[in-house]
């Protein structure tokens, strides 16, 4: 199973673009990438999940850990590009209430830009 993480810095926002499936096999790689920056004080992180086809609870654990670490360093985590299935996962777990989560933009909205 493949997973790619790209890190882009845009106007002091750390933007992570994740492509692939996040499960028990790929999660350690993701965790390592995120852990490299999570101690930065006051970091504004944006995690783009629009190219993530599947994520299980191990993946969710990685984001919970990242969220806690960034929050402890007075930073902010925003998760974008969340599809319907992932949205349900964030809803059920109650994480939607504490994390900044943005649904995937619909194709129509893209077209008008």
């Amino acid at each position: 199973m493949n997973l790619q993480v790209e890190l882009l810095e845009e106007n002091s926002v750390q933007r992570f673009k994740i492509v692939g499936e996040i499960d028990a096999f790929t999660a350690p790689k993701l965790k390592e990438k995120l852990a490299a920056v999570e101690k930065v004080v006051g970091m504004q992180a944006e995690v783009d999940l629009s190219e993530v086809g599947y994520m299980d609870s191990t993946g969710l654990g990685v984001f919970v850990g990242f969220y806690k670490a960034v929050k402890a360093n007075e930073g902010h985590v925003k998760i974008i590009g969340v599809n319907k299935r992932l949205k349900r996962l964030f809803e059920i777990t109650g994480l939607e209430q504490v994390m900044d989560i943005v649904m995937e933009e619909s194709r129509d909205a893209d077209a008008t830009v």
Binding site: V64, I92, T93, G94, L95, Q97, V98
Partner: peptide, 14 residues
Amino acid sequence: LDAKGLLLGVQPDV
């Protein structure tokens, strides 16, 4: 049967 509530272990006051 759903009820709102955060996962255990994320933050102390829920």
